[in-house]
Design a protein around this nucleic acid. Structure first.
Lengths: 198, 198, 198, 198
DNA sequence: GATGAATGAGTGTTCATTCAT
DNA sequence: GATGAATGAACACTCATTCAT
């Protein structure tokens, strides 16, 4: 017997597949239901509405990343290595679950304007950048990073990671065998350490 | 005819306002027409369809940036300064035209999957990263930047710039007086030069 | 079996509560089940379908009134007093069971068009006006009432009673302390006896 | 060319036909559109939503009756004759426009609970009983009617009229040639004058 | 070229009913 | 008999696009 959480998981995965292909707006509840091999009505036994599915997708990923960030934050390694671990995690995720990451990159934008109380997953997800900043601040505080505006630097790093993931996904979609991820973490780590000047 | 281009311009500006407020999907042709003080039908005298308006918005911005990039590319200044000029241009644009930049940041994502031939504006816009890469490559070639993977570095830089602009827009929308742009170009320039290590 | 009838009664009462609050169309089987502290499926062990519940509600009330009318019909009192007793009964019911009467007043209308054979309760209920007519006819026949069109007069009286009950319910819902029922039976009795002319 | 008000009128009449046959809930916007020989979307160019159509139907009828009541109120005839004129008007309407009156009788009930601000037509309609009361009060004040509770009497009379109209409509639907309306106004007038006692 | 009423395919959501456990 | 998850037909409403004026 399929228990409740398993069915919700089936729908979540079906939604990821459909939304990543068609975008949130192009993904109809009918198509998601079809992909999940479930009746449309069933979706509504597990989710309040279509947005709630998207929100749940973000919620799940948010939790994964939050755990990872917290663990990294507390580790006793150099800050640059902490950032390096985070980069590797992100780049690993995008190659393991490109559909999912596509959603996170593309659909999250739609909700920056949106302050509805009930979309906690999506809004929490944005909060992840805050943890990123914390790690940068920690590095400045303990002298491992030089003085800088942690807001700007953390934001820039986060954007750099997202852009590389996006580039990977675009190349993937174009049928190009992309190897941008292979060196990305190391290149950025080196960049962090030395800058670009020859 | 001058008149014709003026009306198209009125519609383009109205569309920017509405789309930036409501997103492309939330922006109805009725609302755009209302904002432009024009009948819906009139829009279709100037644009093939709704997407064509968005495409045109990107087209116009693409051309502006292309010109700027080309001019910079040919200037006889240090590569880091070239990148610095580009950063300043981008940060200046977002504070001058936040509505427009919001569209560029948020709506472009939606079309990464989309290979329709007719959306030249949006697809060309993505091509801008190519010019960015060219400048990085130029820097490596002339020895002003050290050896690195120009694809990764250019992509990362572009992402960094976008993330900072996004952060600025989010703070703006939240009613926060953001000053993230003030230091951003300098911070990143410094980062480019030296890295983060203390 | 006693148990069976008790459960059916629980569902009937729950349905009365929900339908009176939300109307028949607004009342979902889920809500009725919840109110009855029973699973949806259970309802269908006692009722063929949702309409059948409404029908049963009418059936039960029909029987009560039928018994009362028959008893009154056979009593050896003046016809005007018979009508007076009926008025008092109706006005007493609406103050004792406003939820129930609300359903009878509001939902019965919806089924006047509807000739489905299986809704005996609702259709029988309408038949009550026939008994009302019988009492008027009886009064004419035995000379206690003057010659008149019993159809018209009985229908008019029935309508008058319903309108007063409706007015009471509306005032009740508006939070107004209504006392329209206090005098209603007497006023109408007097009206029956004397008319309105001064 | 069909002007705006004519098209709205076409939709209103189509809606009356469909709603009177199927009830408000059974009347789909598709069916109304079909009856009006118009696209569904067109309905929404003239009405905010489905309820708004019903509301407009009530609004139109409300205005007609309001005018009539006001005119009657100011006439210099005996109060019983005023009431008689009103009865005749109502009975005349039901035989001229049975579909319309069916809606007024059956669907109005659904909104007694409902206090949404925007359904002015339906709520105003209920206010008509107030004018009815005014005429009764006027009669009491000028000594043409005896002392009585005008609320109760007006409500009762209104209910009587509605019940007779309903009876007429039911007989009509059953294919019975009803003549209940022929005598109804006179019978009630006589009732008003003399009561029922022989 | 300008207008804006008309169009109707398309979609999120609801909910009575079923049936395997 | 009791349960409640699954079902999917049905429906109100939207909105890009067209076209007669």
């Amino acid at each position: 017997m399929v228990i409740r959480e398993q069915k919700k998981e089936i729908i979540r995965k079906a939604a990821i597949e459909i939304i990543s292909q068609l975008g949130f707006h192009g993904a109809t509840t009918d198509k998601i239901a079809q992909q999940a091999k479930v009746a449309v009505g069933t979706i509504y036994n597990y989710f309040k509405n279509k947005e709630d599915i998207l929100d749940y997708i973000f919620e799940v990923e948010y939790k994964k990343r939050l755990d990872f960030y917290k663990k990294i934050y507390d580790q006793d390694i150099h800050t640059v290595d902490k950032l390096y671990e985070i980069l590797k995690m992100h780049f690993s995720e995008v190659s393991k679950q490109p559909s999912l990451i596509k959603i996170i990159l593309y659909e999250r934008k739609l909700y920056n304007n949106n302050n509805k109380e009930d979309k906690t997953g999506i809004h929490k997800f944005r909060g992840l950048t805050g943890f990123f900043k914390d790690i940068v601040k920690q590095g400045i505080d303990n002298g491992q990073l030089k003085e800088c505006n942690s807001d700007i630097i953390a934001t820039a790093l986060f954007g750099a990671v997202e852009a590389i993931m996006e580039e990977y996904l675009i190349e993937l979609d174009s049928g190009i065998h992309s190897n941008i991820l292979d060196d990305a973490a190391l290149q950025i780590k080196d960049f962090l350490l030395e800058g670009l000047r020859s």
